[in-house]
Design a protein around this nucleic acid. Structure first.
Lengths: 343, 343
DNA sequence: CAAAAAAGTTTCCGCGCGTAAAGTTTTTGT
DNA sequence: ACAAAAACTTTACGCGCGGAAACTTTTTTG
């Protein structure tokens, strides 16, 4: 890393002793040139520290190597983890990921997709806001850009979907809760920010009926992404008003459960299994903090890594397939029961 | 939004009845053209849906409108919140923020800065990894690009720093703890991921001495960003081994405190003020989840919004100042005591 | 209302690179 | 060793826009 500054590929080609078009080929795919040429270029490369101008490169290419990652809410550690895994998979595949967060706002999400179009990305990994997303915006975007939806599902949109198998995971925890104590009530948001809620409610009802138990769904009022606050406030109210018909509560997700645990604590209710405990509380997702609640939260894990890996794999197939690589696929990842102390 | 598709600025200029250079001026600053021309352009704009090609625009401009935001660890909701606030401030200022996370890895951070250089950003907001950052990488980067450091401080690097006033906030909570019970021990990581730890330890020692109390610092072994796990494991061990000389523990940050609360719970120790409680635990940061721990965590708030706002403001000054807008500044935001039940 | 100032138009060049075409050199296979 | 194939070089054009220069039109000002 010495030598004078290299301004552009022309100059770099000169100092490396290779013609510019060949150098250009090298940067697009190092394996497309002869090994001897490659060696000469790379020798020059670590002597002169040149990098092609990002903007000039992308101006001409029909498709860039950019991959957009759009998550609904970054202050939720779940998406932070997903983002990390997805980013690294993309880099490993030679793509340049760019991360965006909709911050829970549908109009923001629309702006992101709009801007993304201008970047002519090779593909996009989108975890849509779901319920509050403007369906048409997402739909038209998916028609233009190879898009894989993850986490959150919108009917008939996008090319592939990767997410957790709510039917399976909810059945799993409902079965566990029924087997070890009173059958669970479901605690969810009245107007869920995330379509997974609806799937989970349906799965809960189905599972309860298959066990021959009456269904009891308690809905928390409130909108937005401050799930803990809603879980705490509305869960506390539901407890006070005796809305839960059994001593066991299955929360639609862990963040709601964290709020509910706080509400139970405030009221002096001991949460856990066995005698001396007033309440059992379970969640869903195995949120990064779930193991540090008091008591530690019993939940069903979402396999972050598997979801990330499969999402990127699906996107890569679509990109390489050139748009029409077969039918829409739904890739579901199974959850695992994570038994802790809260239920 | 109808009409045929517009390919480039040339065509758009034609349909709007304005010359291309003037249209170009408009896109660089809508206020730089006469109101009548602006109106004509905007009339065409919502009839034809044209947007300048991002890559072509940035190819020629010496400086882009891109602002890089680099945080050390996105799965920490603290940085998620900061990122959100900062992003919005940037957009409001007409800049295009791009978000990056170092994911706790110094080499990753170096890659990000390296790539960022290629984007010729107008400026960068960097929350460095700190201790594990390669100092020289960050230093040379700051020389090339207007950079404002936030949250985490590296001596003599960057143009400005915006963060919390650890001296003030630690003094505040130490004073509170001393006044209301036994003087606090400090619980921190042995090899902190974040330079704030060092500042806080110093502030703790200073505050304790000013109150005439002996200092007791307990260090948790472990590296990385999984603070809750370290706090739980090492905190539990410290409790078991009787390393805390008083019943009051001040944690270097809330995530460590969350882990410690879990450890106390596991051992059946009641945390809180007053009789019947074995331990008081306090944190620092007012982490988004701190109010939902059991018991809710007493802590000192970091004012996210103020930090975000002031960081962006400082960066804008630097950008507009054109590089040498005076001396290096340190902008410290004061913390506020957040009294909950844990201490 | 004339003169100065401001804004817009025309014309032109350059940014750094992708990429095609035609010609030349090197490698591969037998 | 020789022909065919593969890789490389030379030359040239285009991408879409920023921005300078010289000139024309519109607006402001006293």
């Amino acid at each position: 890393m010495s030598g004078r500054k290299i301004k552009n590929m022309e100059e770099f080609a000169a100092v490396s002793g290779i013609s510019r078009p060949t150098v250009s080929k090298y940067f697009n795919d190092p394996d497309s040139v002869r090994v001897t040429t490659r060696a000469r270029i790379e020798a020059a490369l670590d002597q002169y520290d040149y990098r092609p101008n990002v903007f000039a490169v992308n101006q001409n290419r029909r498709l860039t190597k950019i991959v957009g990652i759009v998550v609904p809410y970054l202050a939720d550690p779940f998406f932070g983890e997903i983002a990390r895994n997805v980013e690294q998979s993309c880099i490993a595949a030679g793509l340049s990921p760019i991360l965006f967060s909709s911050h829970g706002d549908a109009s923001y999400e629309a702006d992101i997709l709009d801007n993304l179009r201008g970047l002519r990305p090779a593909g996009v990994l989108l975890a849509p806001l779901g319920r509050s997303s403007t369906r048409s915006v997402v739909e038209s975007f998916c028609k233009e850009v190879p898009t894989v939806l993850f986490d959150s599902y919108i009917d008939e949109i996008g090319e592939d979907f990767v997410g957790s198998n709510n039917d399976q995971s909810i059945a799993l925890i409902v079965e566990y809760l029924c087997r070890t104590g009173e059958p669970p009530c479901l605690f969810e948001m009245a107007t869920p920010s995330n379509p997974n809620s609806n799937k989970r409610r349906a799965a809960y009802i189905k599972a309860m009926e298959s066990h021959g138990h009456p269904v009891n769904v308690v809905k928390a009022a409130g909108v937005g992404w401050d799930f803990e606050a809603i879980g705490c406030r509305e869960g506390g109210r539901a407890i006070a008003e005796g809305l839960f018909s059994t001593n066991t509560i299955l929360c639609s997700n862990d963040r709601l459960a964290i709020g509910l645990l706080a509400a139970a604590y405030q009221r002096g209710l001991r949460v856990g299994r066995g005698s001396g405990h007033a309440l059992r509380i379970a969640g869903h997702d195995d949120h990064p903090f779930a193991r540090y609640t008091c008591p530690p939260l019993t939940t069903v894990s979402q396999d972050y890594k598997a979801i990330s890996r499969k999402s990127v794999a699906a996107l890569l197939e679509r990109i390489e397939g050139g748009g029409d690589a077969g039918d829409r696929r739904s890739i579901l990842v199974e959850g695992k029961l994570v038994m802790r102390d809260s239920a």
